[in-house]
Simulated scan of single mutants.
Amino acid sequence: MPEVIFNGPAGRIEGRYHPAKVRSAPIGIVLHPHPQFGGTMNNQIVYNCYYQFVNRGFSVLRFNFRGVGRSQGAFDHGVGELSDAAAALDYAQAINPEARTCWIAGFSFGAWIGMQLLMRRPEVEGFISIAPPANLYDFSFLAPCPSSGLIVHGDKDAVVPLTSVQGLVEKLKTQKGIVIEQQVVPGANHFFENAIDPLMEVVGNYLDKRLGKQDAAE
């Protein structure tokens, strides 16, 4: 898991990158929660999600948004952070020129950024959106949502009520040709305290299903 530094719109960006063994393997980008509330690429959910992709043969990158850790710049209310995410995908594609597809995963604020990146990059074929803050940010840009994906939420989330996420899911499900899967982790709050393992089981099972690795005993 080498440390990497790459150029972003606001200066250098600090990341961690795990190369795949197969040159044509898909790329995975994992985005961290809100920088002003302690979010970093070492967040436990981001870290564990990163390894869900690593363990399935992806080339995976997680990184600190501008102003976090050793990444240069300052918090930009989502605008600059979206540019950072695009720069991260550009970087990953530059060192994996044979990769044809990629996945975006994000937690909370990172889920919001990830869904915006999804709209701008047609090569994104799947997404994992963990506790998307549908009551705090505008998700109306997802019209139509271009890729199938997973939305995971805790039923004890006091930051983002389940009803607001449910509304987002129902809206996305109206798009033809894509499948939005929703999973609710029982007893989990917004940060999935004491619920990381069941969350990662949901994420891993979904990846296996999309990658065709689940057997008939599912």
Results as ranks from 00 to 15, higher is better:
Tyr91Gly: 03
Asp76Ala: 14
Tyr91Ala: 03
Gln44Cys: 00
Ile196His: 13
Leu172Lys: 01
Asp197Tyr: 11
Lys173Val: 01
Asp76His: 14
Met200Asp: 03
Val179Leu: 13
Ile196Pro: 01
Gly28Ser: 10
Arg16Tyr: 14
Gln214Val: 14
Tyr206Thr: 04
Asp138Tyr: 09
Leu117Arg: 01
Met1Val: 14
Phe141Lys: 07
Lys156Ala: 14
Val184Arg: 05
Asp215Glu: 11
Pro33Gln: 08
Asn194His: 14
Pro9Arg: 10
Phe107Asp: 04
Asp138Ile: 04
Asn43His: 10
Phe58Gly: 11
Met200Val: 10
Gln182Pro: 02
Tyr206Gln: 02
Gly73Lys: 02
Val54Cys: 14
Leu199Pro: 01
Gln182Ser: 12
Ile95Trp: 02
Val169Trp: 09
Arg16Asp: 13
Ser59Cys: 09
Val159Asp: 08
His190Met: 10
Arg120Cys: 05
Lys209Gly: 09
Gly67Thr: 03
Met200Tyr: 01
Lys209Leu: 12
Ile104Gln: 04
Ser83Arg: 14
His153Gln: 15
Met119Val: 07
Cys49Leu: 14
Leu89Lys: 03
Val184Thr: 15
Gly73Ser: 06
Phe109Arg: 00
Asp76Trp: 04
Arg66Thr: 04
Ile130Pro: 00
Pro161Val: 02
Val60Glu: 02
Phe75Ser: 00
Tyr91Pro: 01
Tyr47Phe: 14
Arg23Cys: 06
Phe107His: 05
Val165Asn: 01
Leu199Ala: 07
Glu125Asn: 11
Glu201Asp: 12
Ala217Arg: 10
Asp84Trp: 07
Ile29Gly: 02
Gly39Lys: 06
Ile104Ser: 04
Val22Trp: 05
Val54Gln: 03
Leu150Gln: 04
Pro186Asp: 08
Gln36Gly: 05
Thr40Asn: 09
Pro19Ser: 08
Phe191Arg: 07
Glu14Pro: 01
Pro9Met: 08
Pro33Lys: 03
His153Met: 02
Ala131Tyr: 09
Ala94Tyr: 14
Val202Thr: 11
Gly73Asp: 00
Lys176Ser: 10
Lys213His: 13
Glu3Gln: 10
Met1Trp: 07
Ser71Leu: 06
Val202Lys: 08
Leu82Arg: 02
Ile29Asn: 01
Val169Asp: 06
Trp112Gln: 08
Asp208Val: 07
Tyr47Val: 12
Ile180Val: 15
Pro9Ser: 12
Gly110Gln: 13
Phe192Arg: 05
Asp90Ile: 04
